[in-house]
Amino acid sequence: MTYIKPSFRHPELPVNDLGYTKKAYEGAISTLCAGCGHDSISGAIIQACFELSIEPHRVAKLSGIGCSSKTPTYFLGNSHGFNSVHGRMPSIATGANMANRDMIYIGVSGDGDTASIGMGQFVHAVRRNLNMMYVVENNGCYGLTKGQDSATADIGSQTKSGAPNLYEPIDLVTLALDLGATFVARSFSGDKEQLVPLIKAALSHRGFAFIDVISPCVTFNNTGKSTKSYDFVREHIEATGKMDFVPMKEEITTEYEPGNAQDVTMHDGSVMRFLKLDQEFDPTDRRATYNALQDAKEKGDILTGLLYVDPASQELHEVIQTSQKPLRTLTESELCPGQKALDAINAGLR
């Protein structure tokens, strides 16, 4: 069932294919700190969904606990949301997705929520290739509990508390790659131009689409000695390439120099046009990704952009062969075998 309602709108506001203005994709007013990176990510999600002409109510927003996990309230107000418990969003998302394979699932989490308390659930969602977009709003600290170091904080990085972090960081991107993730990207909340097409591609991917977004916490971790501050990230950011996301319906018009572009066709026919900055890099080659990540690390840079995609990805429903019809729409006639089958079962038990 589709509901496209003609409604009065200001003639100057752009509308998408569904006739919605961007307003239809907004949520409640954010209560995060002014300048918090997380708000920019919400903005990018709104923009991407608007541009993709997604029906907002076909999206389910899921999160754990943290400043980052609060953000689903601030986008897609016409979508159902589930702010679950700390670190356990992946299991909620798994169950929700099993119930209805026809919706779009957006999971938002924090670095604490994912890399510490929720690590167990995160890695298993990756390896099951659950069909969802999973965004980590990575600020290297626990914002909501006032700035403690998180497991993604770099050695020596200092939050407002002033003590350098002593432990090795967990790099969620390499971890996801190791676990066989089928879509891996990294971005920066301050780079909307890169983030919006990445989100669009992630939403079109069939399988687990992971985006690690560095998202500075202005209140606790934007210091001169933090490696997750706006300044540090801007100085050290390096991109694998520039990406355009071209929905199926549109003609590909982007100009590019031959040899530098690579098209990746998504399952729905849309195309990711990837303009390489480095000739060697191929986002469908896992080994190339490892090399590029390693090179960047050695230089002390943060590699962003689309890092890896498997266009042939088989999502969980395909792997376990569940019905094409969403399970939640099945009724008694499809679910209950009835007395006759029971008679046969009884007979076998005598």
Binding site: L62, S91, G95
Partner: peptide
């Protein structure tokens, strides 16, 4: 020939009940 059910062997019981809650929330 497809299944009108889904069984997930979860990573632990926290995840198992989370999946149950997620599915029920979504109408299954």
């Amino acid at each position: 020939g497809r299944k009108n059910f889904a069984i997930i062997q979860a990573e632990d019981e926290l995840a198992a009940i989370g999946m149950v809650i997620g599915a029920a929330w979504n109408g299954a």
